[in-house]
Simulated scan of single mutants.
Amino acid sequence: MELTISQIKKKSLASLKGKWGMGVGLTLIVFLITTIVPTIVEVFLSGGFSVWIDQTEPPLIADMVNLLISFLFIPMTVASYWFYLVIARWNDPKISDVFAVYKEWELSLKLIGTSILVGIFTILWSLLLIIPGIIKGISYSQVFFLLRDNPQLSALEAITESKIRMKGYKWKYFLLNLSFIGWAFIAIFTFGIGFLWLTPYISTANATFYNELIAPQDNEDAETPDLEL
C-alpha cells in the first residue's frame, strides 16, 4: 500500500532523528558558499569594496563569472539531494561526501549537463504556458535521484525515466511540497533562520518520496525505449 503524504512526512521526520545537526550544518554551509563566493567575486571584479558598495549594477564580467560559478555549484547541490537520500534510507551520511563529488570530474560534468538540459526543457515548455512548464518540471524532479541509483543512464535517459516513473505521482509530489508552505511562512518570519531546519525536512521528505514510490518501480515497467521529452 502506497504511503500517503502524511506518512511520507512522518517517515522523513523519523529518519531525521539524530541527524538534524548534520542537516542544519549542511544547509548553512551550502548557503554560505553559494552566497559568499559570488559576493567576493563581484567585489573583486568591481574594483574593490568601496566601488562595489556604491555601484547600482555589477559589471558584466562579474555576472558572467558568477554564471559560470553557478554551474560549478550544481554537483554540490545534487550531492546534497543524495545526502538526504542516504538519511531517507536510514543510513549515516557524511557532509564531506557532498563535496567529494568533485573528485569525480566526469560525474560532475554529467550532473552539470543534465541540470542544464532539464532547465532548457522546462523553459521551453514554459514558453507555451506556465502550467505546462510546472508540470514538466515536476515530471523531471526525480532525475538526479535516478542518476544516483542508475549511474549508467545518460542525461536524456534519466530525464525520460523520470518522466515515465512520475506518471500518476505528479499531483502527490506537488501536494507534498505545497504542504510545507505554512512552515515556509514561519521560516520567513524568523528572518530566514527557520530554513536551516525546514530545508532538511523538505529535502528528506522528497528523498523519502523517491525511495518509497519511485525507486521501487519495476525496471521492466520503467524502460525507456523512446527519448520522449
Rank of each mutant, 00 (worst) to 15 (best):
V78H: 08
D54N: 15
G23I: 08
L16K: 10
M64E: 03
V86R: 05
T39S: 14
I159Y: 02
T34N: 13
A187P: 15
R89E: 11
A100Q: 13
A184L: 08
F44G: 06
I130P: 14
W105D: 00
T35V: 01
W105K: 15
F180P: 10
G47N: 06
W171P: 14
L67S: 14
A215H: 12
K163Y: 03
G18F: 03
V118Q: 06
E223D: 06
L153W: 02
T27H: 09
A184T: 13
A205V: 06
G168H: 08
Y81A: 10
S15D: 03
I61E: 09
A158E: 00
I33C: 13
I95K: 08
I61V: 13
A187T: 11
N66D: 03
V98E: 03
E157A: 09
E157P: 12
T199R: 11
D218W: 02
F99T: 00
T199N: 12
K103P: 12
G21C: 07
Q217V: 09
L3F: 04
I164K: 15
M76C: 04
S141A: 13
I87V: 13
K167Q: 13
N219W: 02
F73H: 11
P93G: 05
L111M: 11
Q152K: 14
N66G: 05
L117R: 02
I159T: 03
K110W: 06
L176K: 11
R165W: 05
I8M: 07
A222K: 13
V37Q: 07
S96C: 02
V30P: 08
V24T: 09
E212Y: 01
I33L: 15
A14C: 03
Y102R: 03
L60Y: 06
I186R: 14
T114G: 01
V86W: 01
I181R: 14
A205Y: 07
L178Q: 08
I74H: 10
K10R: 12
S70L: 03
V101F: 07
I8Q: 08
L72I: 01
T35W: 04
I120K: 06
K103E: 12
Y169F: 15
T27Y: 11
E223R: 15
P216I: 02
I214Q: 05
I74G: 08
S46I: 01
T34V: 02
I120D: 10
V98L: 05
A14I: 00
F71K: 14
I116R: 11
S115G: 14
D63Y: 12
W105T: 12
M1N: 13
L28F: 13
P151N: 02
F191Q: 02
D92V: 00
M166R: 10
N91H: 03
E228R: 08
I214V: 08
V51Q: 12
R165Q: 09
M76E: 00
W52K: 05
I120C: 10
K94T: 12
S154H: 07
F185K: 14
Y102L: 10
I214M: 06
D149G: 08
Y140R: 05
P58G: 00
V43Q: 07
P93M: 00
K136W: 06
L156K: 04
M64T: 04
A215E: 14
D218H: 13
G182N: 13
S50V: 11
L13G: 08
K170A: 09
A184F: 11
W197E: 09
D221T: 12
G25D: 03
S12H: 08
